[in-house]
C-alpha cells in the first residue's frame, strides 16, 4: 500500500528546501550515490555549544521507504564521544524511535517519532542533544559514566574529537 513515490517526492522537496534555506548555514546536506533515501549531512557545531562547539561532524541519514510514517536512522561517520551515540556512530534519540516499539520502555511515547517531523527538525534535535545528553538511555555506557563522574576527563575527550573532526575534513 505504501508507495515509494510518495516518500521520494517528499524527500526531494525537503532536500531542496534545506539546501535553499539560508538560515541553516551550519547544516549542509547532499545525497549519497544520488540515492534520495541516503543523505550525507555535515554539521558545523556553533561555538556556543557546550563541549562540541567548533566541531565538523559528518553523518548519514538513511530513510526507510515508508518515510515519513517511519523515522530515518542517523549515524555519525566522524568518530564522536557522546553518551547517546553508540561507538559505531548510531544516534539513539527518542524522536528517531518509532512510536509503536516498546523496547525503549524508559521514555514516554510523547517524545517519539511523528510523521510530521522533518530532516531539519531531526538535525536540530540532534544538535541540541549534543550539549545536553540524556543520562537515562546511554548508548555509549563508558561515555555516560565519564560524563557523570569525570566531567573534566569527558570534556578533554570531546575536545579531542572536535579537533580530530577538523583534521578530517
Amino acid at each position: 500500500m505504501s508507495s515509494p513515490a510518495a516518500s521520494t517526492a517528499l524527500l526531494r522537496r525537503q532536500l531542496k528546501e534545506m539546501q535553499g534555506d539560508k538560515d541553516l548555514s551550519n547544516i549542509s546536506v547532499g545525497l549519497i550515490d544520488d540515492n534520495i533515501y541516503e543523505w550525507e549531512v555535515m554539521l558545523m557545531i556553533s561555538d556556543d555549544c557546550k563541549f562540541y562547539g567548533g566541531g565538523f561532524f559528518r553523518a548519514r541519514l538513511s530513510f526507510p521507504k515508508d518515510y515519513p510514517l517511519m523515522p530515518p536512522k542517523m549515524q555519525f561517520e566522524t568518530p564522536i564521544w557522546h553518551p547517546n551515540i553508540y561507538p559505531d556512530g548510531n544516534v539513539c534519540i527518542s524522536i528517531l524511535h518509532p512510536p509503536e516499539e516498546d523496547k525503549y520502555g524508559y521514555e514516554s511515547v510523547q517524545e517519539r517519532w511523528l510523521p510530521i517531523h522533518t530532516p531539519e527538525s531531526i538535525l536540530i534535535s540532534v544538535i541540541s542533544m549534543l550539549s545536553s545528553p540524556n543520562d537515562e538511555s546511554p548508548a555509549n555506557v563508558n561515555a555516560a559514566r565519564q560524563w557523570r563522574e569525570d566531567p573534566t576527563g569527558f570534556k578533554k575527550q570531546v575536545r579531542k574529537c572536535v579537533r580530530d573532526s577538523l583534521e578530517m575534513c
Binding site: 505504501s2 510518495a6 510514517l69 509503536e100 511515547v109 511523528l114 510523521p115
Partner: peptide, 18 residues
C-alpha cells in the same frame, strides 16, 4: 485521506498531537 489512512495503519494516534 491516503496519508492519514497509512499513518493509522502504523499507529492509531494523530500524527500531529498523538
Amino acid at each position: 485521506s491516503t496519508c492519514i489512512n497509512k499513518a493509522l495503519e502504523r499507529s492509531q494516534t494523530c500524527p500531529v498531537d498523538r
